[in-house]
């Protein structure tokens, strides 16, 4: 097993005719993802890499039985694309673009909750269940099937960790890009229960960073109902104050909410193992797997 995506995932690529959309569709097909349809308004009837293109998500879903969508459109058009997918009843919508206006994401967030749709991202590398399927832009060669469930606000910190895990012979069940923005469609707390229920996942790794209170909320949830070992890294402790480091969400507010210290304290109290670097995550994972 794995979470969110697997061999049964039938994926739509929104923006398939764009440069990024086409390039990553090719990469996803190469990996074995079932990309069943593309959507670009006005380009219905075309084919891209053998994948049929439709004008609307609803039509694509009707004709192909798609059950997930990844949005490769520029930030300014993310909202309309996501709302369209949510309206079409697609249960899993993955948004990649960075620099999405936060008001747009605010609307998408609430609409998705209203319609019971799971949104991942924005500013996310997507999702990969190694050996089964990937929906996103991650360089998939570094991933390997296995038992570590990973979720990360940062793409680069995730890659670095995965690279070291794979080199150490430790594979991953699913890696989820939470995304680096202020409002994420799904947070750690939304993903944790899925890893808890997944038979394949033995250890959970969460890579958080400064800003917001999602790590603190995750700590509460972990204490209450997560039995699997959780290892966490919080990046940004020494980032310059009041300045966001490229991730719009990585900023400590004036009242101190979102500091690394507060997150580390809450997670430690909940029994989470705190790693102090990506390399340390790997040693912690090794220790946990050995003690199994």
């Amino acid at each position: 097993m794995s979470i969110l995506i697997d061999k049964n995932t039938r994926l739509i690529v929104q923006g398939i005719t764009g440069r990024e959309g086409t390039f990553h569709t090719e990469q996803m097909l190469e990996y074995g993802t079932h990309v069943v349809a593309g959507v670009t308004p006005g380009k219905g009837g075309m084919e891209v890499l053998g994948v049929p293109v439709f004008n609307t998500v609803r039509e694509a879903a009707e004709k192909t039985g798609a059950n997930a969508s990844v949005i490769f459109v520029p930030a300014a058009h993310m909202m309309s694309g996501a709302l369209e997918s949510i309206d079409a009843g697609i249960p899993l919508v993955i948004t990649i673009a960075e620099h999405v206006p936060v008001h747009d994401m605010m609307r998408v967030y609430h609409y998705a909750r209203l319609k019971n749709t799971r949104v991942i991202g924005p500013n996310s590398f997507g999702i990969i269940s190694p050996g089964k399927s990937k929906a996103g832009f991650m360089a998939h060669r570094i991933f390997m099937p296995g038992s570590v469930g990973l979720m990360s606000r940062s793409a680069t910190n995730c890659y670095e960790t995965v690279f070291m895990l794979t080199n150490a012979g430790i594979g991953q069940s699913t890696c989820v890009g939470i995304g680096g923005d202020m409002i994420a469609g799904s947070s750690f707390s939304d993903i944790l229960p899925l890893f808890e229920e997944d038979d394949e996942t033995k250890v959970i790794v969460m890579i958080g960073e400064i800003g917001g209170n999602e790590e603190e909320l995750a700590a509460v949830l972990i204490k209450k109902r997560i039995t699997k070992p959780v290892i966490a890294l919080i990046a940004g402790k020494n980032a310059p104050k009041g300045r966001s480091m490229g991730h719009a969400g990585a900023i400590v507010s004036a009242d101190g909410t979102g500091s690394a210290d507060s997150k580390i304290r809450a997670l430690s109290e909940a029994g989470v193992i705190i790693a102090d670097s990506t390399a340390d995550i790997v040693s912690c994972v090794k220790k946990q797997l050995l003690s199994e």
């Binding site: 940062s154 960073e209 990046a235 991730h247």
Partner: peptide, 28 residues
């Protein structure tokens, strides 16, 4: 991004998450 005005070293990387964890390790 200018950081600490009294600092002496500059860091270059390809991603904000990695930059942040790099700064953390160096500052330590």
């Amino acid at each position: 991004i200018p950081c600490d005005g009294n600092g002496d070293i500059a860091v270059m990387s390809n991603g904000s998450g990695m930059l942040m964890s790099c700064i953390d390790m160096i500052t330590r």
